[in-house]
């Protein structure tokens, strides 16, 4: 049996595991801190978006891998 396809989506799926955990951690910790100190919500929210953006960058690098023109074997 021959299976033909692209490996890039698989690699992307693997990469998303890591950044998914990271983003969840950032947002969860932010919710925790807002529950503790609701008056800091605005500041914490902008920090959260920053942390999410930095973590997300990893999975966007993974998408970009699919666009690299690797030479055919």
């Amino acid at each position: 049996m021959n299976i033909v396809g692209q490996l890039a989506p698989l690699a992307f799926g693997l990469a998303v595991i890591g950044s998914g955990i990271g983003v969840g951690y950032v947002i969860g910790k932010t919710i925790e801190s807002v529950a503790r100190q609701p008056e800091l919500q605005g500041r914490l929210q902008s920090l959260m978006f920053l942390g999410v953006a930095l973590t997300e960058a990893l999975c966007f690098i993974a998408i970009a891998v699919a666009f690299i023109p690797f030479p055919a074997p």
Partner: peptide, 13 residues
């Protein structure tokens, strides 16, 4: 590199 990729790939995705 991350500044570029973050913006581009967000929009493409």
């Amino acid at each position: 590199v991350t500044l570029t990729l973050r913006l581009t790939m967000n929009m493409i995705a």
